[in-house]
Design a protein around this nucleic acid. Structure first.
Length: 852
RNA sequence: GCCCGCUUGGCGGAACAGGCAGACGCAUCGGACUUAAAAUCCGAAGGCCGCGAGGCUGUGCCGGUUCGAGUCCGGCAGCGGGCACCA
């Protein structure tokens, strides 16, 4: 028999699908729609295994849903703006646009070789003015709707390169190129008012039932709703008050200091005539802006010498510090510290010799002798040493403090959010220009809609750091649309998260002259199944949820939630290899020596094998999908991606695993291309012998299980079911009564079920089996209910919870018959050893447990 | 630092909603076919004890709930991921 040649077959079927426009999506209100979307890729130039995994899963869903009768939308595009293009420009003297579009062309070719059932007519790239003009239009709408504002905000500043750095460009507090310590600097920037939707974004999470719980939890924590109290502290010897925010007003009587942010107005005022403080504030600016940087930095404080009066005990006062861990962005930029009940405050108090007074006493502790040692106590308890709060629970004490503070006019209950507004300004070239003009007379003037898009200038130089838009000789100089006088364009561009916050909506009507065409989004949205990496669990998904609401407010569409279903896939990992010198090696540069040891492909020197880690270029543990597809074909790559590892978990790429997948494609070919099957259309026999019936049961059970497993995103289990059906087929030895018909049914079903995963091979076999219609256009089978239940079941019999025997019994036996059958069994009699049965626990058709 | 996740044979994993732990695959071993190899086909296999029937034990660790725990609860350990300018 001939072997299956994936190279020929894959090219052939891809061409057939393309010519027939088999995957083109057209709105059809008469049919139920299904929108499958994978997170679109950044066009880095080559697809990697993570893409293969992501797009294979999406394609399985798309092909499956299409076969189930849905009108499927499955588009692809490019998240094409971003920093790497500028880095490439800097390093290789190639224009970001040229670099990006060449990368897109190559990746499109690679994706096409995977045989994905995509509607390529809807392809878009976010760097195309035809895309980003609409983004500019919507920004102006958001501005009118009050969702946009401008304020000063902190950035990472590289003092050597005079440029703003991304967090990833800050390594150990230093610029990645210059190696110079990074400073925090303030810059006027554009913000989108995501906090206006904080309550709604939080509340709506409950309704996203087809999202992973962990993603919802991460978003919940990110939004970070907390109820607390704003409280005024009077200062001794100064007129100002310090307003603090606290979620633990109950611990107020344990307060031993106040801490202000380095950016707090009072700090700034004090620093003007206190050089030591000014120096400290300067020092706080060292280091990056990320949370990890701020929170792992050493906790530092500066005693201002001021004292703040306790709100409830005028005679008592606490020192006022400036501290580097207090964030101006959160709450009021000032806190009171209660060391006994907050670890960070405790560390701070120990360092600066401040009092540690416990005020919440755990139930099991003695109030008089209760002391705090190295760890703060944050659990429940009763209040002590706290005046009018003594004896109250934490919750009651919080309420009591709040009530008194409000009554006294020096406190206000408040809901605070960790969520901050979305800073969308980037001081970069390769992004969507922000359509604003700064005029000396008129202020900030929106670019008139007729002048959109504001396109990026093409004649830019990347010979030095900084934003080329800023130093462009002509681009930023423009007449003010309002007064006509010379004015200057905004040179910031949008965060690329803006681009990706609405592309799913654009896919519904990618050619529309407005951002979206209403009928199209009304039909297709929301996305029924979104698939991507868990690394986007918070930002991209939260921004998209906000952006969709903003679009809704401006009348572009009428859904609040963009993604009804979400699936987050795991990463693709591979073992790491090093040579004797400790240098990383690509797997492709190694081979197996005669004794099985791994050696360098050329030198034959030994190679040490490290643990499996996420594929990354820096560790060289990458396998190029193009090589795999070249050697084995796309179906093998797809099949391997789906076998073994549950999709949400990390997958380890192994050569042996790919070989196994390859062998199965050949095995399937042999099973289905075998001679001697009855022709299609042969009528179903009335009678089936036992072997034929058993095969039919296996076939129909496979249909049900594979269907359920694909629906439930258990692709690895679906693959196992397909193997089981293949095994049943292999074991089948024929049956004079209906055997041939049952065999054909099983083979046909096997091909049909494998179709979403190995579409080319399945299409080839489908044709070989004599079908006229394409598999890609054929329906999914329905299992016959009668074939799904067995007459006999295997019942496990336990004595005292231990398995003693398994019995093959008729289905749904009544308890008396069951008891009789169980007690007749020798093994059970022996296990009982004459003891009396106190109770018989029966799980129908599964387990009998005899309690003795 | 904070938040989140994961942990089952040699390996990846399966186990509906608390009910036969190890489906399915990979690797391994034995056999068939072959001059030989590859490919393919058949078979074995968690660990320990036993000639055997069989017994004991076993889902990261400690404890609990239950007739029954991989699954539920409490505690611990190890590993991984995210943290607002990478996408």
């Amino acid at each position: 028999m001939s072997r299956y040649n994936p190279k020929l077959a894959e090219a052939k079927w891809q061409e057939v699908w393309r010519r027939r426009e088999a995957f083109r999506a057209v709105e059809d209100p008469g049919r139920p729609k299904y929108y499958v979307l994978e997170m679109f890729p950044y066009p880095s130039g080559r697809i990697h295994m993570g893409h293969v995994r992501n797009y294979t899963m999406g394609d399985v869903v798309a092909r499956f849903k299409r076969a189930r009768g849905f009108n499927v939308l499955h588009p692809m595009g490019w998240d094409a703006f971003g920093l790497p293009a500028e880095n490439a420009a800097l390093e290789n003297k190639v224009h970001p646009a040229k670099w990006t579009y060449e990368n897109i062309a190559n990746m499109r070719r690679q994706l096409m070789s995977m045989g994905l059932s995509l509607d390529w007519s809807r392809e878009l790239a976010t760097c195309d003015p035809g895309y980003y003009r609409h983004q500019q239009k919507m920004f102006l709408d958001f501005l009118k709707a009050g969702l946009v504002y401008r304020k000063e905000s902190w950035v990472n500043w590289d003092p050597a390169e005079h440029t703003v750095l991304a967090n990833e460009q800050v390594i150990d507090g230093r610029g990645w190129r210059s190696g110079v310590p990074v400073e925090r600097r303030k810059l006027a920037q554009w913000f989108l008012k995501i906090t206006a939707y904080a309550e709604e974004l939080l509340g709506a999470l409950d309704g996203l039932e087809r999202w992973p719980d962990k993603v919802r939890l991460m978003q919940r924590n990110w939004i970070g709703r907390s109820e607390g109290l704003r409280l005024d502290f009077a200062l001794r010897g100064r007129p100002e008050k310090v307003e603090v925010f606290t979620t633990r007003p109950d611990t107020l009587f344990g307060a031993s200091f106040l801490a202000l942010s380095a950016e707090h107005p009072l700090t700034q005022a004090l620093a003007r005539d206190n050089p030591a403080l000014a120096a400290f504030v300067e020092r706080c600016r060292q280091g990056g802006t990320s949370a990890a940087d701020v929170e792992t930095a050493e906790k530092l404080g500066f005693d201002t010498g001021l004292e703040a009066a306790h709100p409830f005990r005028a005679g008592e006062a606490v020192p006022v510090f400036v501290a580097n861990f207090v964030l101006m962005e959160y709450g009021t930029g000032a806190i009171f510290g209660c060391p006994a009940h907050d670890q960070r405050d405790l560390d701070f108090a120990r360092k600066y010799g401040l009092a540690v007074k416990p005020v919440v006493i755990p139930a099991e502790a003695e109030p008089a002798g209760y002391r705090i040692a190295a760890e703060a106590y944050t659990g429940p308890g009763r209040l002590a040493n706290s005046d009018f709060l003594d004896g109250l629970t934490v919750a009651a004490a919080k309420a009591a403090v709040a009530a008194r503070a409000e009554a006294g006019g020096f406190g206000r209950r408040e809901v605070n959010w960790r969520l901050r507004d979305w800073g969308v300004s980037r001081q970069r070239y390769w992004g969507c220009p922000i359509p604003i003009i700064h005029c000396a007379s008129c202020g900030m003037v929106p670019v008139p809609e007729a002048d959109l898009p504001v396109s990026l200038p093409e004649d830019v130089e990347f010979d030095r750091p900084g934003n080329p838009l800023d130093r462009h000789p002509s681009w930023c100089h423009v007449a003010c649309p309002s007064c006509g006088k010379p004015a200057r364009r905004e040179t910031d561009t949008f965060d690329t998260f803006v681009d990706s916050s609405w592309y799913f909506a654009r896919f519904c009507s990618p050619q529309a002259s407005s951002p979206v065409q209403r009928a199209a989004v009304d039909y297709w949205l929301p996305v029924d199944q979104y698939i991507g990496g868990v690394e986007h669990a918070i930002l991209h998904l939260l921004y998209s949820r906000f952006y969709t609401r903003a679009m809704q407010k401006c009348g572009y569409l009428d859904v609040a939630e963009p993604f009804a279903g979400l699936f987050t896939q795991g990463m693709v990992c591979h073992a790491t290899y090093r040579d004797e010198a400790g240098q990383w090696l690509f797997p492709a540069d190694t081979r197996r020596a005669a004794d099985g040891a791994l050696v360098h492909a050329e030198t034959g020197r030994p190679v040490s094998i490290g643990r499996s880690e996420k594929m990354s270029k820096s560790r060289k543990n990458v396998v190029d999908p193009e090589d795999i597809i070249e050697r084995y074909g796309a179906d093998t790559a797809r099949w391997f991606m789906l076998s073994d590892s549950p999709p949400e978990r990390d997958l380890e790429w192994t050569e042996a695993g790919v070989e196994g997948a390859w062998r199965f494609t050949q095995r399937l070919w042999r099973l289905a291309a075998a001679e001697g099957l009855p022709a299609p259309g042969a009528s179903q026999p009335n009678e089936f012998g036992p072997a034929a019936l058993a095969l039919r049961r296996a076939t129909h059970k496979a249909i049900r299980r594979v269907t359920e497993d694909i629906e439930g995103f258990r692709f690895n289990v679906a693959v196992a079911r397909i193997y089981e059906l293949a095994n049943a087929l292999t074991e089948f030895r024929g049956d004079p009564s209906g055997g041939a018909w049952a065999l054909r049914e099983a083979v046909k079903t096997l091909v049909r079920l494998a179709g979403p995963m190995m579409p080319h091979l399945a299409e080839e076999l489908w044709q070989l089996l004599g079908h006229d219609r394409l598999l890609a256009e054929s329906a999914w089978p329905e299992p016959e209910a009668a074939l799904l239940v067995d007459e006999t079941v295997t019942v496990a019999v336990q004595v005292g919870g231990k398995l003693r025997a398994t019995l093959s019994l008729a289905r749904d036996l009544g308890e008396p018959e069951l008891r009789q059958a169980v007690l007749a069994e020798d093994k059970i009699k022996r296990a009982l050893d004459g003891r009396t049965i106190r109770k018989m626990v029966v799980v129908p058709n599964r387990v009998v447990n005899l309690v003795v």
